[in-house]
Design a protein around this nucleic acid. Structure first.
Lengths: 291, 291
DNA sequence: GATGGTGTCTGACAAAAGTCAGTAAAATAA
DNA sequence: TTATTTTACTGACTTTTGTCAGACACCATC
């Protein structure tokens, strides 16, 4: 590693640390110390289980308890016993808590907007931020099954289609392609998987059930900021696990030679090329894999 | 500002906050709380004046005093009265302090190296980090006069020459160009300015004194991560101030039509095009400005 | 239904960080 | 010169955060 690279990384760190400090101190502007503010924030974001909050914020159980008591006393939070395990407790915002949470959200949005709006080329900045965020947290990536109608899934697909339109010489119109019906990509016929990192979808993959003795792998996409990190491999392994769980023994997929990195990837990971098996106008390369 | 852009920015913030937390806790690994560690770090980085440290770390004067006393008791720091103002005090590392500081530096370097080395495409990551760091801190940019021999200046120039070689169809060899002698760009004949942000040079500009009744502006360069932010304007205003300070009334510069953004910039900012005034092989556009 | 383990809470501390009024010494202004 | 301001220091706080040993209720298991 060159000295210059280290220096640049550390400079990034300095810059970002002071920025983070500024955000944190803006959180203090609402007259509440950082501890309770962070807990309120976590609860507002749907982390309701007390143990989960504790793990998330790395808090001692005693401290956690007191912070929750404080928020209860303020009338922002109610804590009730969990349904299936009465030892565990679950926190929820009161209406007043919702209001207070919204104020913090507005502060954060404002801060984020300020950074973006004073930049001459926001999209470049956003792409850089995506790349950095993905690089820093990649190990925390979680693969989760969602319905294809999930808004994050839809967003991935829209980006995917946009990219295909850009890379295929004749463009790409999803309506001309064999668009899987949503329920073919939901249990019990199939599945749709999202790779999520820090709350943002950075990749997806679909498993489409058919009645022809095999299932198809569709819509494998990795966000530009996460490429070459091995995410496609993670997604494909997860898709194969899903298939096995559904009792599917054979997988097929189609792709296009205009996407050489995809073709290379499938060749490398145990897929064998087979003759055309559908009449979709876009693909020109076809693969099969037995589980 | 679209919702998605805000969400992406906030996601970046989340990712980076947890990373920064990890660095901070690695600082705790040396058995010293964050407060003293930060003060030691500041002193090691050349912020010796007590008032300056206080401003930099936003510490109360009482707290500052106690932190310094603690570091003195540990034998890491000596605090002496300032030379020109005996009320002010100035801190310096003892040999033991130097050693301890080096340990923190090594920790930071290690952390930075770890981030880079686990990434498949470090240069892209570095560029993204530069862009983000510059965007976040741009307002803190400081313009400072340095000798052209300053290593940061040399690094800017090397990058500048590399870029010219890349953009001129016939390449660029600085030895064929009229390379200003160093002392022509130092007071009292001229000046060399550096734009520094978070310790990193992100731009430069030179003022080269001549005996021909005018001075030349040379080597105006802005780092890719800082372009379109108005830094060239800042640098040029500073160069003009330098020229005025040296009693120079007329400025000239040459550039090349292969750098249209530069030509556009000079046209926009009060320079008038004039006929060729030198026999340098590279430039083909010439400007003059009266102060 | 006894046993051991888990999740939360409380009390009792301790460390770290932050606050503030007052003091002393030096610099600056009147 | 004297008065005022500036800079750092000290003492006496408070708040925030972190730690730890029980206590208690609950769950799972034999």
């Amino acid at each position: 590693m060159t000295i210059d690279a280290i220096a640049r990384t550390r400079r990034f760190h300095r810059a970002v640390t002071s920025e983070v400090g500024a955000l944190d101190s803006s959180f203090l502007g609402r007259g509440r110390p950082l501890g309770p503010a962070r807990v309120l924030h976590a609860i507002g974001n749907g982390v309701s289980d007390v143990a989960e909050i504790r793990a998330h914020l790395k808090l001692d159980s005693g401290l956690m308890s007191r912070l929750l008591r404080g928020l209860e006393d303020e009338g922002l939070v109610t804590v009730t016993a969990s349904e299936n395990d009465a030892r565990r407790r679950s926190a929820a915002l009161t209406p007043a808590g919702e209001v207070e949470f919204a104020e913090y959200e507005a502060l954060s949005d404002q801060q984020a907007g300020a950074i973006l709006s004073r930049h001459p080329h926001p999209e470049a900045l956003l792409q850089a931020m995506d790349l950095v965020a993905t690089a820093l947290g990649f190990d925390r990536t979680a693969i989760q099954r969602v319905p294809p109608s999930d808004p994050r899934a839809q967003q991935c697909l829209a980006t995917y289609y946009g990219e295909l339109a850009h890379r295929f010489s004749g463009g790409f119109d999803v309506n001309l392609s064999a668009d899987p019906e949503a329920r073919d990509m939901e249990p019990p016929r199939g599945a749709f998987l999202l790779a999520v990192l820090d709350g943002m979808a950075i990749g997806c993959a679909g498993l489409k059930g058919t009645d022809k003795g095999y299932a198809e792998v569709k819509r494998v996409w990795v966000a530009p900021s996460a490429r070459r990190m091995g995410l496609a491999g993670l997604l494909m392994r997860a898709i194969e696990d899903e298939a096995r769980g559904l009792g599917i023994g054979t997988l097929r997929l189609d792709t296009n030679s205009a996407l050489p990195e995809a073709v290379r990837f499938y060749r490398k990971s145990g897929w064998t090329e087979i003759p055309r098996f559908n009449d979709d106008p876009y693909p020109d390369v076809f693969f099969e894999k037995h589980l």
